[in-house]
């Protein structure tokens, strides 16, 4: 990893100095031990602060959204970043010519306090970048150690009352900080539905009904576009099991429309939930 870190610093420096890109997105050491934080810089000198270690837990993939208006940005991308970038590209949030993607293979990241592999990384099926302009180091081909829908099948097997309790319980904790929305590479609306006052989709009260409505609406909006990076669940300060909601939708899409995984390449067909076909399955009707 230290080789990669060196390579990152020198490539970032070159790219900024040559003027090829306007900014670089990576990680730097944080204030605490075993902690990193995103680094966004336009100064070649600052590239020496870039780090890459087993604690680079942030998915950087959403940052280009706010940066490409001023010019091209370079981003270090593992599987999750690369898929987030595909998400932004196919949602027309950014343009391909405005990102320079430097791929890095990912062995999986660890929890700062326990040293254990992060849950999202254990579940991750694509550690290596699926799109890049150049690659630093070798792909890692890390296997997913967790079955994709195991959790869903477990919840679905519960009796109805317990299932309801599971979600009621989860949403009773939500403080509606919207961290999950803010971190999500799919959540790029110009104005989120929760902020649309005129329609008033969602009440401002913090209660289980409104919280659940927020959670369920968000999961449907993210729906067929979720890249399963697990960031929402990681950043949730109240530890809501958000990925079980996301994966439930993905699980249903898989069952209704066939094998489905999004944001693996740029030329994907339009996704299942936003196309209209006369012979669409309508088992729910």
């Amino acid at each position: 990893m230290s080789d990669i870190q060196e390579a990152m610093r020198s490539r970032a420096k070159e790219l900024l100095e040559s003027g090829e890109v306007n900014a670089v997105i990576g990680w730097e050491a944080g204030r605490f031990e075993n902690q990193t934080t995103p680094l966004i810089t336009s100064q070649a000198a600052k590239t020496q602060r870039l780090v890459f270690n087993e604690y680079c837990v942030n998915n950087l993939g959403k940052y280009p959204r706010d940066l490409t208006a001023k010019g091209k940005v370079a981003i270090f991308a593992r599987g999750c970043e690369s898929r987030a970038i595909i998400r932004l590209l196919s949602d027309e949030v950014i343009k391909r010519e405005n990102v320079y993607i430097i791929g890095i293979g990912c062995p999986g990241m660890r929890d700062r306090t326990t040293g254990e592999l992060l849950k999202k990384c254990a579940e991750c099926r694509h550690g290596d970048p699926v799109i890049y302009d150049e690659m630093l180091g070798e792909p890692q081909a890390k296997p997913a150690t967790q079955e994709r829908f195991a959790e869903i099948q477990k919840i679905e097997a519960l009796p109805r009352a317990e299932r309801e309790a599971y979600f009621t319980n989860a949403f009773s904790k939500c403080i509606r900080c919207y961290a999950c929305r803010n971190v999500c590479p799919c959540c790029t609306c110009r104005q989120c539905f929760v902020d649309q006052r005129r329609e008033g989709w969602l009440g401002k009260q913090n209660n289980i009904a409104e919280n659940r409505f927020y959670g369920l609406t968000r999961v449907m909006h993210v729906g067929d576009r979720c890249i399963e990076c697990g960031e929402c669940e990681r950043v949730c300060p109240m530890d809501l099991p958000l990925m079980s909601l996301n994966r439930k939708v993905i699980y249903d899409i898989n069952n209704l429309f066939g094998e489905y995984e999004t944001a693996l390449s740029l030329d994907e067909p339009p996704s299942a939930l936003t196309t209209y076909k006369v012979d669409d399955v309508e088992e729910f009707m």
Partner: peptide, 15 residues
Amino acid sequence: EALCQGDGACVNICP
């Protein structure tokens, strides 16, 4: 248009 982000989800769904 203030809200539209131009991702074209509507384009694909319109029969």
